[in-house]
Design a protein around this nucleic acid. Structure first.
Lengths: 159, 159
DNA sequence: TATTGTTATACTCTATAACTATA
DNA sequence: TATAGTTATAGAGTATAACAATA
């Protein structure tokens, strides 16, 4: 059986932060599969689309840093989104090496649709929590994630 | 820059559950690298070792289910741990197909050492939280993870 | 016929280095 | 010389199917 939060022994697996984060993360990815099945890149593709749709337009390096992923994988994600006309790469007037990523009109529509679908996915994943605790959990998880991002900005100069 | 929890717009990336879980999970895995560098299988290897060290002895199918991983990947994890004499596969007296996995004496010692090292890793990952909120966060995350495990037991009969 | 564990294959995600074109 | 983006390669992690031994 799967461990339940009732055993109480601090050495049990369900007290291991790595186990908890891994299980929660994989459960989220799996729960997304249906909702994002027509979106290239899955959750990652949605995150790129979010930045592109929200604006202002940014270049790929800035997007990779915000997402916490390597800029080499971002190239492929944008390739796939661009191929189905959800985002576009525009020349950066300030720097001819740089390319600004924006959402197309269908891209913004697709983003809103998937955002709505993901609301249900998130509710499903957080369903085990009492309703009054979901906001608390999101707020605390946000602090952990943002803290990690600011500690290890990724693609830091020198590595 | 990395997003900080101060923007407040509900469409921002730092309100996306997938982004938060992914960033937190990858930050944990990265923070583990040094502490678990001599342990085959990394965090997964540690989790197997935890079950084997805590007892009672279980067969591989039961361990895979508790870990939430496929039994085919567990074979490789146990192979690697057995090769360095941290766990052993014993014949199951009740079923000759089944093999019981237990920690060896050096395996139990290694588990205690790594458990101590991981306490610091966990504290590092949870460092952005106010001290009084860490227990709350762990408790809520545990509910989410255990809820997901009991909903999707993995290797369920029929899939 | 179903189950335990193993092996092989493939597909995704990630990490690294090398390359181009600009700065 | 350094940076933005691309490409190629290799390594993990994961999923699937097929297989041998046993129930």
């Amino acid at each position: 059986m799967a461990p339940l939060p009732t055993t109480g022994h601090p050495d049990d697996l369900d007290h291991d932060l790595g186990w908890m984060l891994g299980v929660a993360f994989r459960a989220y990815v799996k729960a997304c599969e249906v909702a994002l099945q027509d979106l290239p890149g899955g959750p990652r593709g949605y995150q790129v689309l979010t930045i592109a749709a929200r604006g202002p337009a940014r270049n790929q390096g800035a997007i990779a840093e915000e997402l916490g992923i390597d800029r080499t994988v971002l190239t492929y994600l944008i390739d796939d989104l661009e191929q189905v006309d959800l985002v576009a790469r525009l020349p950066d007037p300030a720097d001819r090496r740089s390319r600004l990523v924006i959402a197309t009109e269908p891209g913004r529509a697709a983003w809103q649709q998937h955002r709505e679908a993901l609301r249900h996915v998130e509710a499903h994943v957080l369903d085990p929590l009492p309703a009054r605790d979901t906001a608390t959990f999101r707020s605390l998880l946000q602090r952990v994630a943002c803290g990690a991002q600011s500690r290890d900005p990724l693609s830091d100069p020198g590595g």
